[in-house]
């Protein structure tokens, strides 16, 4: 895991898959939000965030992810997370992210699930 969070993305129809690599803090969260909003503006209706290479998330990062989730919900879209470490999985559930976003073990499962909903 690198120190500064990097975000890469691949668009598959109406679904955008984002991969994070690094600490999701203020900087990392902003990177994710910027890319997510860009995808939503260009017509994406579902976001899949693969956090396989992220092992730390702080509360600022979580609040930004909640903002992204709200934006996705405003657009009647779908947000899913996958490949979370057990610690991050539990963090997302406690912080309420899992209430409106889905969590899947693998990217394949997440992609299949959101594709069926858009």
């Amino acid at each position: 895991m690198s120190d500064a969070c990097k975000v890469s993305v691949e668009r598959r129809g109406e679904v955008a898959v984002l991969w994070t690599d690094g600490y999701i803090n203020n900087q990392g969260g902003e990177e994710i939000a910027r890319e997510s909003y860009r995808q939503l503006e260009s017509g994406a209706r579902a976001l899949v965030m693969n956090l396989e290479k992220t092992r730390i998330v702080n509360s600022i990062g979580i609040s930004i992810l909640i903002e992204v989730l709200e934006r996705v919900m405003d657009k009647k879209g779908v947000l899913a997370f996958c490949n979370l470490t057990p610690t991050i999985d539990k963090t997302f559930r406690i912080m309420g992210l899992a209430q409106y976003a889905s969590i899947y073990p693998t990217e394949e499962e997440a992609f299949q699930a959101v594709s069926a909903r858009v």
Partner: peptide, 16 residues
């Protein structure tokens, strides 16, 4: 060490 450091940074919102 990783477990302790990750949680310490995460829960104090520290940058490093």
């Amino acid at each position: 060490a990783d477990e302790v450091l990750f949680r310490s940074i995460s829960l104090t919102d520290a940058r490093k």
